[in-house]
Design a protein around this nucleic acid. Structure first.
Lengths: 229, 229
DNA sequence: TGTAATTCTTACCGGATATAAAAGGCGTAT
DNA sequence: ATACGCCTTTTATATCCGGTAAGAATTACA
């Protein structure tokens, strides 16, 4: 999962599968799909997902039973997505080894946030962290390691915050005031000249030419943005 | 926490506190209570809970802000309990480092199940690995024996805690405040001079040159990390 | 009780980093 | 064509931070 986490979607309704796939992709996650219970073990073994989204209401097997079977040999985080809303179903699933339980219809943003929580957990015990990648430039948020073409580069705290703030919103324009707030906090009386200096330092270290940038683009009068992916 | 986990309840309404206390006790869990935001850090430091149940709607400070402050130095699992039900509040809390989010009124059984899930998570990281190994440096957690190139070296309690805290998260950056909390249990973020001294002693004993370290790396302005494996 | 080990305190140095101000370059508008 | 605004670069200064050392206070232990 060094690059982008891989999510296995187990869900029989193709509409929801498609919807989830799009939502995951737009958040830099890969997805693998499975529409029945029978193939789930093979899919897990074959694709080795970082997380599993499991619908309890599959036609060919009871979801709770499937959950128990998976947990006998597999520790991958599992988020339950189900139309069943009773307390009993939730408690049962959580005690059967599920890591989270969302009732349909669910909020996409909340699901994504809970996926991130689950991935965060597995990183604690694991080794690789959440990664921002922009071309040859990689930022590992858990180890604070920044590499450019496999070479590690050392950033000061301000430069690191700048880069991660831009990288987290890759492709989107971040205004001067947003950046100032993200890096320096509430001291909003600063003007954007601070930004220019540190953006310059950052560009030097990652080898970016302001006249012809590859990573950090200046949006005159507004702010900066990075190229998407 | 081997036998009965300790839960810190942060909630201003005494009715709910009392209710939670009973529910936890009848499930073989201890509880510590706190009815305001101001005392939370002291309570965490004093009681070292295994999990925190946090109400977002405290009168004396915004819950999200408090959450962020806690997460700067403390990694204890946090379950949010709140009357705020909007998607935005949930996502914000989860991204601020909360591990779960329940909307009031909540189901007691579900809360207990989710508490168990959170405790399960923190156990996974805890009991694994009796041996920390970083290159030629080995730490046996069961016998407290530290060897460097097969030669035993004697560490003081503080040095040992420092080394194990760094070693358990090999490759990841540990901030000053996280280390201070882990080793001294206090939040002396005013001055990290303690750290400097003991890191120095530790480095001397394991033969690590600060200018060109093999094991303990300084992350300026942030903290320290060990090299991964 | 005396000694050693450990921890805490204080102070200092050097280098890295942040801030500040001024100068230079480019495009645009009047 | 000139002046202006915006961004970049340069230079200079001050502050912060981490490493080091030495001694005091505390604790452990014999």
């Amino acid at each position: 999962m060094a690059n982008s986490p891989k999510i296995l979607i187990v869900e029989d309704e193709s509409e929801i599968r498609k919807f989830l796939k799009v939502a995951l992709q737009s958040n830099n996650m890969q997805s693998v799909e499975c529409d029945n219970a029978r193939d789930v073990p093979a899919q897990i073994i074959g694709t080795r997902p970082d997380l599993i989204i499991l619908d309890l209401g599959l036609p060919d097997k009871d979801g709770q039973e499937l959950l128990q079977e998976i947990r006998e040999w597999c520790k991958t985080p599992i988020i339950i997505l189900s139309a069943r809303f009773t307390e009993m179903e939730k408690v049962l699933a959580l005690e059967n080894g599920a890591d989270d339980y969302l009732v349909k219809p669910f909020s996409t943003a909340e699901l994504l946030a809970r996926i991130k929580v689950a991935l965060r957990h597995s990183n604690v015990g694991g080794d690789e962290g959440y990664l921002i990648q922009i071309g040859d430039l990689k930022v590992d948020l858990s180890t604070r390691q920044v590499t450019y073409c496999e070479n590690e580069i050392k950033l000061t705290p301000i430069e690191y915050k700048l880069l991660t703030e831009l990288g987290k919103n890759a492709g989107k324009v971040i205004t001067h005031s947003q950046l100032l707030y993200a890096v320096w906090g509430k001291r909003a009386n600063l003007d954007s000249s601070y930004l220019r200096i540190h953006i310059q330092h950052l560009r030097e270290k990652i080898g970016d030419d302001p006249m012809n940038p590859k990573y950090i683009f200046t949006i005159p009068g507004i702010g900066y943005k990075t190229r998407g992916i």
